[in-house]
Design a protein around this nucleic acid. Structure first.
Lengths: 208, 208
DNA sequence: CAAAATTTTGTTAAAGCGTACAAAAAATTG
DNA sequence: CAATTTTTTGTACGCTTTAACAAAATTTTG
């Protein structure tokens, strides 16, 4: 297992890598995973095509870094929102907000991410990439509900909660419906309110 | 607009078309939309590769016929289930059963169909293919609930219902979770029971 | 300005679709 | 029923896209 000899990163190298990752992100949003080709990434970045494999091992490395970058941003936003929350209920709402970022819940983004999810079910490497996101979601929900519910009830709730989030994103990607952010959130909040026992909701609402 | 001159279908032609569609279906389930190539379809069918465009316009026609075939089968099953039902509630359960066919709710099928849905959000021709399915679902739900709920409440319910179905299928396609048919249905039934007002459920349960 | 880093250009190889054509089989006709 | 035509089946090839790499050119740096 020969590792690539790592020299210290130059400023230019860091700049180019970010430029390429950003370009990849724009192409990805516009054309989905299938439309993401090396040539397009490079020309979107205003660089010539061969440059990609100078700074990255291959196209997948660019894509993977892009996904990781997005996961990081999302996770940070959620952490911030969670910090601001003063009750379990507010923390749940923070999770919902985090999973439906106002600036990014549009048809393009939804289509693009669904295309990645689709690939992940046929390709373990892609699946691994998405796992941190799901793990974090589950662990966040669990830690909020643990004081009030047994673990198997939490798991059941979690399944429905995660499925609903995914399903709403999937529906958002479809052209014939026009699903607004408000609608999506309202459906999800509705679900949370009704899926959790009243007693739990009452307890969650108390500030702490 | 020159139409293709249509000769009468020979027996052989019908046989080959079905063979190719079936082969395409097997490949599709195994490898998803991305893995579905003309060459694989033909060799899976035990025929040589050029034959595909002799019996079909192109690869997409095979795929589209495959999807239509599936839609037909699904729709027929649902109609049968609906006929057997004796109350609104049973009709709702029939819809759920129809959308989670025991023989077909597996990881392979889920992954494959999600890959088609992903493509549909970037390609209008694919999107059109899926529309009948959604229309039918919505119209079925509406006709069951119309006597008891205003249209906008029905639409709201419908959105969550459809999203939950899609979401559960999407989660089924992921390797790290092992979502059983029973679990999926239980989450969905739970949702229905809680999202609809008690009064409506009571009325739905009355035989008619 | 020489060495190193960066970028561009061009090439190669693989995959995949669709078409052109060849071969075989079946049907038709004199 | 033999010759001819038509239909059916199968193969081969060309075109395009794309990723990856190599080599050459340019720019930067010490």
């Amino acid at each position: 297992m020969q590792q690539k000899p790592k020299r210290p990163r130059t400023r230019i190298e860091d700049i180019r890598r970010v430029e390429l990752i950003d370009a990849a992100h724009r192409i990805f949003l516009k054309e989905g995973l299938r439309g993401l080709t090396s040539t397009k990434i490079c020309s979107e970045a205003g660089l010539s095509q061969g440059i990609l494999t100078y700074y990255f091992k291959d196209k997948e490395e660019v894509l993977f870094e892009m996904v990781r970058m997005n996961n990081r941003i999302l996770a940070n936003e959620i952490v911030l929102n969670l910090r601001r929350a003063h009750s379990g209920w507010e923390r749940l709402m923070a999770l919902i907000d985090g999973n439906f970022p106002a600036q990014r819940f549009d048809k393009q983004a939804a289509s693009a991410w669904v295309s990645l999810y689709a690939e992940a079910s046929h390709n373990e490497r892609y699946a691994r990439l998405l796992r941190p996101y799901y793990r974090r979601l589950r662990s966040n929900v669990s830690s909020i509900l643990r004081p009030y519910l047994e673990q198997d009830k939490i798991d059941h709730f979690n399944l429905g909660f995660a499925a609903m989030i995914d399903g709403l994103w999937l529906r958002r990607g479809h052209a014939d419906i026009d699903l607004s952010l408000a609608q999506a959130k309202s459906v999800l909040i509705d679900y949370v309110e009704k899926a959790l026992p009243h007693e739990v909701i009452r307890l969650l609402s108390e500030p702490n």
